[in-house]
């Protein structure tokens, strides 16, 4: 057998739609390949597992040159909501689930989901603020212990 990856630990640190999806897709894709996967949400990435926020994650329309939108236009009220809506509709057509459903699906694949303790403390959250799929709130040291022997992917 050629070189294979047996395990990945994926860190999601950003709270925008385009900051969260790549990590989710990589985690889900890893499980589909039979690769063990853990997800670790830190800083604004916590919004993806925050009960009140994970349905309202938006595309960043300011400071996002990939959108090819004038910075001033990106800052107009409602622009982020409109573009998020457009993006979600496009993703829906490709059968890419919304974040809540995606988190549930990834959890069902057997991947473990963790929240970063420093960030949870910083934002004054508790485990009750986070979705039920979160297995634990862990320190960076505990994350490294979990990640031992695998690949770490930071997004």
């Amino acid at each position: 057998m050629a070189n294979t990856i047996e395990k990945v630990s994926i860190i999601i640190s950003k709270g925008s739609l385009e900051g969260i999806y790549p990590g989710l897709i990589m985690a889900n894709g890893a499980r589909a390949e039979g690769i063990e996967a853990d997800l670790f949400f830190t800083f604004f990435g916590l919004d993806a597992i925050h009960k009140k926020r994970y349905e309202h994650v938006k595309v960043a329309t300011v400071g996002n040159p990939g959108l090819h939108l004038a910075t001033l236009a990106g800052g107009l009220p409602g622009m982020s909501s409109v573009l998020t809506h457009v993006m979600e509709r496009k993703m829906g057509k490709l059968d890419i689930p919304g974040i809540p459903e995606f988190i549930e699906m990834i959890s069902d694949t057997g991947a473990d989901i963790y929240a970063c303790k420093a960030s949870v403390d910083l934002f004054e959250l508790t485990k009750d603020d986070l979705v039920d799929q979160v297995k634990d709130i862990i320190t960076v040291g505990e994350f490294y212990e979990l990640a031992a022997g695998g690949e770490i992917i930071f997004t």
Binding site: N28, R31, A32, E33, G34, D95, P97, M105, D108, T109, G110
Partner: peptide
Amino acid sequence: PSVRALGKTSGVSVKELYQLFPKGPAKL
């Protein structure tokens, strides 16, 4: 189909699919 599509069409949940085929349901 992919795992997600398989879960939708087979009536077997994603969770059960991974129990049946631990090393990747669609692939295996």
